[in-house]
Design a protein around this nucleic acid. Structure first.
Length: 646
DNA sequence: TTAGGGTTAG
């Protein structure tokens, strides 16, 4: 067989999703040029397709091949248009389309399917509407595939009425077109309308059901999603994954676990989507033991080399406070290449434990190995600085972010800077910084400063900031609490009482705080004001015992003098029954002495709880690892590794 | 040899 025949045959044999190396493809192409095989549109078309789909810089390569080609056909252009449509720069598809027209080639239904996808992916209604008129001009607006893509494009670009019109153009829509219009309803925020269309559908397939699940969950209609899920005669892996991911991302972690177990008990093997769904639930809840079991499963199924899975695993260990295991995942599997997500998780992990210097070292290492920092990793690096009191380093980093990397600071970066000054006690600097910000400060920025005022007891500034915050959300209870903490820190008890009273009168309550603790691989979550249950009773009883013992050791609650004027009921909710105290009580009741009590909390720990945890660790000889909204606290022998800086 | 609808990490 001659070279040219062999190469042409290869054109047929090369599978599209093949793992192809850049060198191999270029070699094949060069050989083809020598033998004249590259004149074959079929062969070169396939090369273009392979380059566009599988190579890192394949699109530019493909475009160059196409430019040099004497007589390209529509297929070749479609391939490159498709490649760009799915890339990070979908608008480049339009350039290839222009080139196609310059070469006097007529776009077909395939071209428009890809081009409309490009318009959808770039969110450009302008481009989409223009393409629509080209579609009409070519008489393709009733084409099933093109019209379906039109529906999706308009929905994606936020133009619901046009999406509906495009659908109504179809005299015989098939199930895919129906599905597209249901998705369009959800996109427009009309879950009820989507439900009506779903009810009218002449035929449904499993995807119709699955997109209803996803739509209801995105609309926070969890009950509807559950009801539909129960009604489904057949559930595939996507159905289960939709529930796991959906419930997990909306903070319903227990439900995410239930669906994950449901998937397993159906005999379906969890895939990377199931795991990237359930691992964040473990991470948020601090479910270390459950996370370890998942790690075993991941190793057994060879998924450690799948980067999103490895990164979710790394983040789980980081958020469960096990930095050693996080390191192990970060370093171990040589088959996977850590990307910026892995580095960011590792940097945050170190920062959360107060290892600011090490976090910054890792950041520098990341830059050294050639990873271009993005805005998120800068948030983590700045967070590392603020949590370890590294003011100069933080300032330098903030400057370099713009000067060297051209990243314009977002409100998150400004927040870190305010925190950096604020925690370090440079409150006036923080205040000036906010006033000089080129973007309008939001409530988070002001609340960060208010938090710093409360730590340092600067009442005057706290009052000013509180006034500014009232413009945003006057009824936000956390602002009142922060101001009252500032008064407390400054010893102004009567002001504390006034605030608490006014909160009580206006029935402002704190966000329900929760804390979770893992006992024997089972997670127990305690919520501040929930009704009595047997578990809660057990925790409360133990807590009373513990507090009695602590009082005997000389502990005085920091709130005793704060709350003397407050209604009895209010006292109940207050510091005495903070959820982290219940969690630790439950941990002591149920766990053996040598076991670390791991607690995760959704809000920041208060000073009183921090003191109590320190005492418990000493009096009861327990190690307590507590992750709050801000960082990790590790209580051992009567002190915390955070050194009371948080 | 190319297509339309549903689930994926910081």
């Amino acid at each position: 067989m001659g070279d040219s025949t062999r190469l042409a045959t290869m054109g047929f044999a090369l599978p599209i999703k093949a793992e192809t190396s850049d060198a191999f493809l270029r070699q094949v192409h060069a050989l083809a040029a020598k033998t004249g095989t590259d004149a074959c549109t079929f062969f070169t078309g396939k090369i273009l397709l392979l380059a566009a789909v599988t190579l890192a810089n394949g699109l530019d390569y493909a475009r160059h091949i196409l430019e040099d080609f004497t007589s390209p056909n529509a297929f070749m252009f479609n391939t490159v248009i498709r490649g760009f449509a799915e890339s990070a720069q979908p608008h480049l598809s339009f350039r290839s389309y222009a080139q196609m027209k310059r070469r006097a080639l007529s776009p077909d239904s395939f071209s428009f399917a890809f081009l409309l996808k490009a318009a959808a992916n770039s969110g450009s209604l302008y481009a989409g509407a223009q393409l629509h008129s080209h579609v009409t001009h070519h008489g393709l607006d009733h084409h099933l595939y093109v019209a379906t893509t039109l529906v999706s494009m308009y929905a994606e670009c936020g133009c619901f009425s046009s999406a509906k019109n495009a659908f109504e153009e179809l005299s015989h829509p098939n199930v895919v077109a129906w599905n597209a219009v249901v998705t369009a309803y959800f996109r427009s925020g009309d879950a009820h309308g989507a439900g009506n269309v779903f009810a009218q559908m002449p035929v449904r397939n499993i995807t119709s059901w699955n997109l209803m699940l996803a739509g209801y969950i995105k609309a926070a209609e969890f009950g509807e999603a559950q009801r539909l899920f129960m009604e489904m005669e057949r559930k595939d892996q996507v159905s289960w994954n939709t529930m796991i991911v959906g419930f997990s991302t909306h903070g319903h972690f227990e439900d995410a676990f239930i669906f994950f177990r449901g998937l397993m008990s159906e005999g379906i093997m969890p895939n990377e989507v199931s795991l990237t769904g359930v691992l964040p639930a473990c991470a948020q809840m601090g479910a270390f033991e459950s996370g370890k079991i998942l790690h075993g499963l991941i190793q057994k199924t060879g998924m450690t080399s799948i980067l999103p899975v490895a990164n979710a695993l790394l983040d789980m260990y980081a958020r469960c406070g096990n930095i050693e295991m996080a390191w192990r995942v970060f370093c171990c599997d040589m088959a996977k290449k850590n990307n910026i997500v892995s580095w960011t998780s590792m940097i945050s992990a170190l920062a959360m434990q107060g290892h600011g210097e090490e976090a910054l070292k890792l950041f520098r290492e990341m830059v050294m190995v050639g990873i271009e920092p993005d805005w998120i990793v800068f948030v983590s690096a700045l967070y590392a600085c603020s949590h370890s009191g590294l003011v100069e380093e933080g300032l330098g980093l903030f400057r370099r972010m713009t000067e060297e990397y051209g990243i314009h600071p977002s409100v998150e970066h400004y927040g870190c800077m305010v925190d950096l000054y604020g925690r370090a006690g440079l409150l006036e600097k923080a205040y000036e910084f906010i006033l000089e910000m080129p973007i309008k400060p939001n409530s988070v920025i002001w609340r960060t400063l208010l938090g710093a005022c409360s730590i340092h007891g600067n009442v005057e500034l706290a009052e000013d900031v509180k006034m500014r915050l009232a413009e945003f959300e006057p009824d936000d209870s956390s602002d009142h609490v922060l101001l009252s903490n500032a008064y407390a820190k400054a010893g102004k008890w009567s002001d504390v009482v006034d605030i608490r009273k006014s909160m009580s009168e206006r029935s402002l309550r704190k966000d329900p705080g929760w804390s979770s603790v893992e006992v024997n691989k089972v997670i127990f979550r305690f919520i501040a004001c929930e009704k009595l249950s047997s578990v809660r009773e057990e925790a409360s009883k133990k807590l009373e015992e513990i507090m009695l013992r602590l009082r005997m050791e000389g502990y005085m609650p920091q709130v005793a003098n704060v709350l003397h004027d407050i209604e009895e009921e209010e006292k109940e909710d207050a510091v005495v029954r903070h959820s982290e105290k219940l969690a630790v009580g439950f941990g002591i009741a149920r766990m053996g002495k040598g076991e670390t009590i791991r607690i995760a909390k959704n809000l920041r720990i208060c000073r009183d709880c921090h003191e109590v945890m320190k005492l418990i660790s000493k009096v009861f000889e327990r190690e307590i690892l507590l992750r709050d909204r801000s960082r990790f606290h590790c209580f051992r022998d009567g002190s915390c590794l955070c050194g009371d800086f948080w």
